[in-house]
Write a protein that binds this DNA or RNA. Structure first.
Lengths: 243, 243
DNA sequence: CTGTTTTATATGTACATACATTATAACAAT
DNA sequence: ATTGTTATAATGTATGTACATATAAAACAG
């Protein structure tokens, strides 16, 4: 039998299985080098699913920019490899270390709170379910420059007694077997409100870089909701993108 | 008849038309506030296309993060908007169009200037070489929300008499055979200085999102140096990353 | 040998249909 | 009142089918 195949009895949707297989398939050297994939009809036949279903899977990869379709020619791996790559998977502390900046934790506060509406939506939990909230102020030894607030999905299983001085994602991976693989971020500018201004030792109303971060695990399930307020000039966000 | 309808004889694919209509539709206040869209069957019927086809369109918006689906509850505009994976290769105007926001150009100013040191370095040109500087203020019809400054490398061959109301990269590609393929960006927060505050009609010192953008062509040669000052709350920068 | 036309093939578009799953609502039983 | 059950309505999954369209390659004409 073929190396790649689909289990019609699995609870996992066929298109999801197909998507997975495709992801594996296109790792193969030939495809990475630009070889066209088997045609849709062919592949559908081989996987014993309908072309429509297979198409769903391919579509997703095309949307993601991993595959490129061309009529008559076929489908192949996108050559210019869009993956923004930007090493923004480093944790804050790792990132700072890389830049040679020693980091100090000024404050660390952990509590259980009732989620607001936004959180209920993102985590998709019941309103009465308590979630773990972590606040911390970090920065150079001489001056704080970022105020973080993190909320963790109950699923993660944090108790609040963990050692939060360790790199966070390392801990989640090792102790809780949760691997953060996807993050969506929104970056904007805000004026420092009083309470935050105080924490960062700036005057109220001064500009801050504000980053919302939505973190997901492999199954695209929400894991963490993170807010970061960065003192202006202390932090620059860099993005590199190709097309 | 309904305000929204689809032309079955148009050469434009039905799913593309439906996508457009959806984009318009969800601009309506109710939907922005979280009202559920008409159900798929209902909408399909109203537009006189099949549910499958309609679904294609909705899928796209869902993938972009504009819509959220929930079984039994229905489909609605993403509230906390973990929005748009939108590959940031869209120009400003294209992006706004996509979101159904009409754009107005408030000011447009084009001059030839002597480059400062940063520019000399980036463009790698002689200090006496003049470069084209373009300034523009853009925003909603009722309020400006971004101030752009662009400098173009002499190689691009702009004269200053071009029609800068067209999408910029489109023009560069068609008229000047220059394809921008790589951009490096730095995003930070700054306080609005007087001259900019005036242009954006905010008070001096209020927070702005500041974006520096270095744009290169295929040969990684510098093309454009772009500064953007975005009024806080008017613009959110989204980044999606996987590992 | 070179330019043109045809043909075959791959993706693109579109529909009708069926059943699965899930969250809410309505209702009944405790 | 709370809990459990059932109906219902929405999206989710999946198939089979048909024809359109673009284009690379083959066939052909000059």
């Amino acid at each position: 039998m073929n190396k790649y195949s689909i289990d019609h009895k699995s609870p996992m949707p066929l298109h999801a299985q197909a998507e997975m297989l495709l992801r594996q398939l296109i790792q193969e050297e030939d495809y990475q080098n630009g070889k066209v994939l088997p045609s849709e009809v062919e592949l559908a036949k081989k996987l014993a699913i309908s072309r429509t279903t297979l198409r769903q899977s391919i579509n997703k990869l095309v949307f993601e920019g991993l595959l490129v379709r061309k009529k008559r020619s076929g489908t192949r791996v996108a050559q210019n490899a869009v993956s923004s790559k930007s090493n923004n998977w480093l944790s804050f502390s790792q990132e700072m270390k890389l830049r040679g900046i020693p980091i100090r934790n000024f404050e660390l506060h952990v509590t259980w709170v009732t989620p607001d509406e936004q959180l209920i939506n993102f985590f998709d939990i019941k309103p009465d379910r308590k979630v773990l909230k972590m606040e911390r102020v970090r920065g150079r030894p001489d001056e704080p420059f970022v105020y973080f607030v993190s909320y963790f999905h109950p699923r993660v299983g944090l108790t609040g007694d963990e050692d939060f001085k360790r790199p966070l994602y390392e801990m989640l991976e090792q102790e809780h077997h949760i691997v953060a693989t996807l993050s969506k971020e929104e970056i904007s500018a805000v004026a420092a409100e009083a309470s935050i201004a105080e924490k960062l030792r700036v005057t109220s109303g001064s500009p801050l870089l504000f980053r919302k971060r939505f973190v997901f695990d492999q199954g695209e399930r929400p894991i963490e909701y993170n807010l970061g307020y960065y003192k202006a000039n202390s932090f620059v966000y860099t993005v590199e993108s190709t097309r």
